[in-house]
Amino acid sequence: MKFNHNRKGQSAIEYLMTYGWMLLVVAIVGGAIFMTVNQNTGECSSEVPMDLQVAEENDFGVAENGYAVSDGNVQVRLANAYSTDVTVNNVTFGDTELTAGSNTLSQNEEVVFSSGSFTASDSCNDFTLEIDYTRNGLNDTRSGTLQGEVE
């Protein structure tokens, strides 16, 4: 009786390949679960969401690095990149209306809206920012969610 040793080697390789693919799939799924669970680490993101940013030349919204929450005070810096004036009618951060000295922004002008009515918290908070403004006689609204830890 003659044994074919090549069959044993092929069987071992098939065994390793089967379990190798299984381990690869388990690693990918495990990594995806880990990233999803680990996303909320308690750290606040200071990035302004794209739907609120001044992302292009003819735009209006929150300036780059345009908001801060500290000492119970919130500040939101708005920028006008339109070629026409923009009148800010109302800025609401969470449940609080923010105020500024001037509400009309010319082209490439910025203004800071602020309020000091926030109480300290040790955790990251999500705040809805809503900006109601008028440009060329037409009302428009931009809104999105910002994160902040009130210190």
Rank of each mutant, 00 (worst) to 15 (best):
N4Y: 11
G116Q: 09
S106T: 03
V111L: 03
V62N: 03
N38S: 06
V37D: 04
Q107V: 02
D126W: 00
Q10L: 09
A27E: 05
D71E: 14
G9L: 01
K8E: 08
N58M: 01
N40W: 00
N4I: 01
G72C: 13
V150S: 10
G30Y: 08
E47D: 15
Y19C: 10
V25G: 09
D140R: 15
L16G: 09
F34C: 02
V25C: 13
F113N: 10
Y19S: 08
G31V: 04
T84L: 01
S46R: 13
G66W: 01
N65H: 13
A12C: 08
D85I: 03
F60I: 05
D140N: 15
V26Y: 01
D71C: 07
E151A: 07
V86M: 14
D95Y: 03
T141S: 06
F113C: 08
A27C: 12
E109C: 08
V112T: 15
S11Y: 06
W21L: 15
E56R: 02
K2I: 04
L129N: 12
G101A: 10
T141A: 02
N38F: 00
A100Q: 07
T128D: 13
A81Q: 12
L98V: 03
L16Y: 14
T134K: 13
T141D: 00
E97K: 12
G61L: 04
L98R: 12
N4D: 15
T96Q: 12
T36M: 04
G101W: 01
T104P: 11
R135W: 06
L52H: 05
D95P: 05
S117K: 13
V26S: 10
L146W: 03
T141M: 07
T119K: 14
A27I: 06
N38M: 06
D122C: 00
A81S: 15
E151I: 00
S102Y: 05
L129C: 03
Q147D: 07
F127Y: 13
V37L: 08
N4L: 03
N125P: 06
A120L: 02
M17T: 06
R77H: 03
T104Q: 08
F34G: 02
N89T: 11
Y15T: 05
T84E: 08
L138V: 08
E149N: 14
F113H: 14
G72N: 14
V91D: 13
E14V: 02
V26N: 02
Y82F: 12
N40L: 01
L138C: 00
T141L: 05
T119W: 10
A63C: 04
S106R: 12
